[in-house]
Amino acid sequence: MAQPTAAESWSGGNEPMKAEYGKLMMWFFLVSDALTFTGFLTAYGFMRFGHEATWPIAEDVFTHFPGIEGDQPLLYVAFMTFVLIMSSVTMVIAVNAGHQLKKTAVAWWMIATIVGGFIFVGSQAWEWYHFIIGDKGGIELADGRVLKVAEAQTGEVLSLSQLVDGEAGHASNHLEKFSTGEVKTAFEANEGLVLQSPGKGHAQLTRTESLRLMQNAQVVQGANMKHNEYGQGQFANFFFFITGFHGFHVFSGVIFNIIIFYNVLLGTYERRKSYLMVEKVGLYWHFVDLVWVFVFTFFYLV
């Protein structure tokens, strides 16, 4: 294309970025949204570095996989990551089909993307449920620190149901509620138990110190915005806020996809001879996947 003369340039209609208005605005929105998520994740890093000793380690927290007994660290998040990458792929294929004006192909690949989005949101609901209801339980000291009950010799963490009832198991870990009194009695009865930090290094207190601190301690099971059994209080707040904000993005993305899918079926873009709207929601959808890649690393892996 020949360079426009000065008069032509000033009369408007130039597209220096060769991108349509809506697409450009979607990109600028995504840049600002990326900075919002940066704020959350760096704030998480700030708090974590400030409370290294009591900050829970994610692989001790997210250990369940539906239908499998025992501890499966990282497996469920890996599954969620796979679902989101997969739905990102189906979205690219839909956009690709849109460039070739293949209406049926666009519709089918968008359905696949929407299904992937629902599976992801559902998985997140499952994970929240387990996080809120709790797993092994913790001991909250008078000064607010949350510690775990562990074998002094091996450093292995005991769940409250193992401690009180002597039985380990998924269902008993989750559903039974224990009083502070019965936990104290069981703790005092077993000479081999101490309190252990949930943070980096899993530092242990001595038996004497543990017994002394147990006097004014409370049992905490599960998690809410004020207390959580996993460790430092802000950990649960960051979990709810970061994965919640991301989950909300995924949910909005699914809604956008459904609206655009409906318009594909109506033939709106067929008449326009352009599937640019599919490309725009596609950008949003890939961004949601992109953010998850970072949440996966900085919340679950590092």
Binding site: P16, M17, K18, A19, S88, M91, V92, E279, L283, H286, F287, D289, L290, V293
Partner: peptide, 12 residues
């Protein structure tokens, strides 16, 4: 993801 899925590599 950004370069290929979001197609940024092929933009101006």
């Amino acid at each position: 993801i950004v370069q290929y899925f979001m197609h940024l590599k092929y933009e101006t």
